[in-house]
Design a protein around this nucleic acid. Structure first.
Length: 439
DNA sequence: TCTGGGGTCCTAGGACCC
DNA sequence: TCTGGGGTCCTAGGACCC
């Protein structure tokens, strides 16, 4: 059996936790740049505020209905997430952290719990809420897809009290009959349209389809979903592996056309991506730089520029990567375009100790020339390691300037295109200056 | 005025191999 | 006129997830 633990309105409840005066009130959290609504408290949902709606479209409505609005505070959410996940890990040995607010649990090795899954799941819910203050819903089923379905029911139907265990076949069928196909894990907007066209509207209608037919029309992934609905497990618990690609990108708070400004933004993204790359002990062979104009702009056509390069010797050195990115940008840069977003992508990653050396690179001379080249490489690594160490020690919040950085990134406080987060809450749990005070 | 960011997996088609 | 069979690797694009 699998369980899915999902935090309710996670970002909104992180904010409410430190603002008890907002309990039961409508609260929403916005995406970066205060763009879209990405989380809503129950009261905000009840007001009819939709997920992912652009904030400017509901701003007046929110003001009129006393909705409290927050910018995204990822420092806070990441810390609260860690507390929830480590609490779960103390209660179950096989946990897959699926996203910032969700975890799958594998319950097969838990014979004691098998006797009464409902009691086990209820206890789990109670402990998580007691230890972290974050309310959760729990769904249990014989496959991950069924656990997801159960979780959806636990959230939707108050009678479940936030815990839904799918054991009896008649229950499973009933739930599938009353659940819309678009609420199923693995069915997005496109598939919904195509499934509807085939006369499939409920989860149950998909479950009774011939899996081979589904494969023919939609591919192997939806076929597996179909099999999982019938109790045949196709998706196992997965454990973290190194990322295969690393992206850092962000929209600007205003349009950017100037080449130097664009370059500073790209360099800052290189620094972020390179830090993540080193954190997972990897190096990259491939770097791409991109910038886009706004797809919503009426005044000019959508423009996207991008360029890629290969590193003969895979690297994680910020300086090497930044130099390459700046050169790339100068070859792809187009004037008179209002860029709305820029970023970098690192791919073709491998472990730093499994690097394939270049047959023709001068590095091969290392042994012959004595220690000079090797010393040089070591020195370069030591510099980057020192920068990482200093930045870790003097860790500012995310989105603040690092303690030590490369000049090409520019000075953050002087960059007027930086992301705007006008409604940011304090970092209650990670910054001593922001710690809540009891009067 | 104002529309997020970061990932994964699968498939089809082309280039190439013997 | 007629043009093999079986395979790998790479890439772009499309779908999905949160």
């Amino acid at each position: 059996m699998y369980a899915l633990v999902d935090c309710n309105s996670f970002y909104a409840n992180c904010e409410i936790l430190f603002r008890p005066d907002l309990k039961g009130k409508p609260v929403i959290v916005l995406s970066n740049n205060d763009g879209c609504v990405v989380a809503r408290s129950s009261a905000a949902k009840a007001l009819g505020i939709k997920m992912a709606v652009p904030y400017f479209q509901v701003k007046d409505f929110c003001a009129a209905h006393q909705v409290t609005v927050f910018s995204s505070n990822y420092t806070l959410y990441a810390d609260m997430s860690q507390r929830v996940m480590s609490t779960i890990e103390t209660l179950c040995p096989a946990v897959e952290v699926y996203s910032i607010d969700e975890a799958f649990l594998y319950l097969a090795d838990y014979p004691a719990a098998m006797k009464d899954l409902k009691a086990y799941a209820s206890k789990l819910k109670q402990i998580i809420e007691q230890y972290t203050g974050i309310p959760v819903s729990i769904g249990v089923g014989s496959t991950k897809t069924l656990a997801k379905l159960a979780n959806h029911a636990a959230k939707k139907y108050p009678a479940t009290k936030g815990v839904c265990v799918l054991e009896q076949l008649t229950w499973i069928r009933r739930l599938m009959q009353i659940t819309d196909i678009s609420d199923l894990w693995g069915v997005g907007r496109r598939y919904k349209t195509r499934l509807n066209a085939m006369g499939i509207y409920t989860v149950h209608q998909l479950a009774i389809c011939e899996p081979a037919k589904i494969r023919q029309h939609f591919g192997v992934v939806l076929e597996r979903t179909c099999l999982e609905l019938n109790g045949q497990s196709c998706f196992d618990i997965e454990y973290p592996v190194s990322k295969q690609q690393i992206v850092s990108s962000r929209s600007f708070s205003r349009c950017v056309s100037d080449k130097e400004e664009l370059s500073e933004a790209v360099c800052a993204h290189v620094a972020t991506a390179a830090r993540k790359l080193r954190a997972q002990q990897s190096v990259c062979r491939h770097l791409s730089v991109f910038a886009l104009s706004s797809p919503f702009a009426q005044t000019q056509p959508f423009t996207a520029i991008s360029g890629q390069c290969q590193f003969v010797t895979p690297t994680a050195d910020t300086r090497v990567m930044m130099l390459a990115a700046r050169q790339l940008l100068s070859t792809i840069y187009k004037e008179d375009v209002d860029y709305a977003k820029a970023g970098v992508m690192l791919s073709d990653l491998c472990r730093h100790d499994e690097v394939q050396l270049d047959l023709f690179a001068e590095k091969g001379d290392e042994q012959q020339e004595g220690k000079t080249k090797a010393d040089d490489t070591q020195k370069k690594r030591a510099v980057i390691a020192l920068i990482d160490e200093l930045n870790k020690k003097h860790a500012p919040n995310r989105n603040q300037q690092a303690a030590v950085f490369i000049a090409s990134e520019g000075i953050k406080s002087k960059q007027s295109w930086q992301m705007s987060r006008a409604l940011l809450s304090p970092c209650y749990t990670t910054d001593i200056k922001h710690i809540p005070k009891v009067q």
